[in-house]
């Protein structure tokens, strides 16, 4: 599989095409049906919020989109390239050059400073920003040499965002990015995400169980029990600072 190398695509182009995806987990002795036939398209440059209660399968979907996990059945295409049947090498290449991740619990490398956490990614990317540049985009230009343990939760999450965007990914996948933060801090983080989406035209998918956040999305996908229960266009996305929860 050859990956397209363009960092961005014109608005309206389909970036992800998900068709009939199911996912079954074996957790110890229990089988869990996490996705029960998902069909969905994500478009270039849009800011999508995937909304659903915990256990609805939204994280599973995001992980499959990010090449962190494989679907049990169905197909996922990224710009026409099949992710479902891609090998480890292709998935690695996809993650390295195309996708950026933000996790609920930041997952910073504890032994590296903010700058070095970003550098760990930029060193293997094709035309990355400087780590300092990415960090100032999320408002952390002053805390470059702090270790994760010396940063607050919101700061850690912004380092994680800087780390995700520094390689100028085509898609940014965020799993409950504000889930561990208070609302004031959460808004700072969301502003960072919105800024990246606008500034870099990065397709951004944010999953959350927090309906308040949906107000800032271009489109909201609702999920429940492994199904998509509804997709809504939001003609007037709000600014993060206008949100409350």
């Amino acid at each position: 599989m050859r990956m397209p190398t363009l960092p961005n695509t014109p608005a309206g182009e389909v970036v992800f095409s998900v068709r009939g995806v199911t996912k079954v987990y074996r957790m110890g002795e229990v089988e869990v049906q996490a996705l029960r036939g998902i069909t969905l398209d994500l478009y270039s440059g849009e800011f999508v919020v995937i909304l659903g209660p915990s256990g609805s399968g939204k994280s599973t979907l995001l992980n499959i989109l990010g090449g962190l996990d494989r679907a049990t059945a169905g197909t996922v295409r990224y710009r026409g390239a099949d992710l479902t049947h891609a090998g480890d090498r292709q998935l690695t290449e996809y993650r390295r050059y195309h996708a950026g991740f933000v996790f609920q619990f930041y997952n910073l490398i504890p032994s590296l400073t903010a700058r070095e956490n970003v550098a760990a990614v930029t060193e293997i990317a094709r035309s990355p920003m400087k780590p300092e540049e990415a960090l100032s985009m999320v408002g952390l230009g002053e805390r470059l040499d702090h270790f994760p343990s010396q940063l607050s939760g919101g700061e850690q999450q912004r380092v994680a965002i800087a780390r995700a965007i520094a390689k100028r990914p085509a898609v940014l996948l965020c799993d409950e990015p504000t889930g561990a933060l208070d609302s004031a801090t959460g808004i700072v983080v969301l502003e960072a995400l919105a800024g990246v989406n606008r500034g870099l035209k990065t397709t951004t998918a944010v999953i959350t169980h927090n309906a308040g956040i949906a107000m800032m999305a271009d489109r909201v996908v609702r999920m429940s029990d492994g199904h998509i229960t509804g997709v809504e266009q939001n003609p007037y996305p709000r600014q993060p600072r206008e949100l409350t929860w």
Partner: peptide, 14 residues
């Protein structure tokens, strides 16, 4: 294993 997975998630190969 966790840190290993993070590195993989960034696009580091096996």
């Amino acid at each position: 294993r966790e840190q290993l997975a993070i590195l993989k998630a960034f696009g580091y190969s096996t």
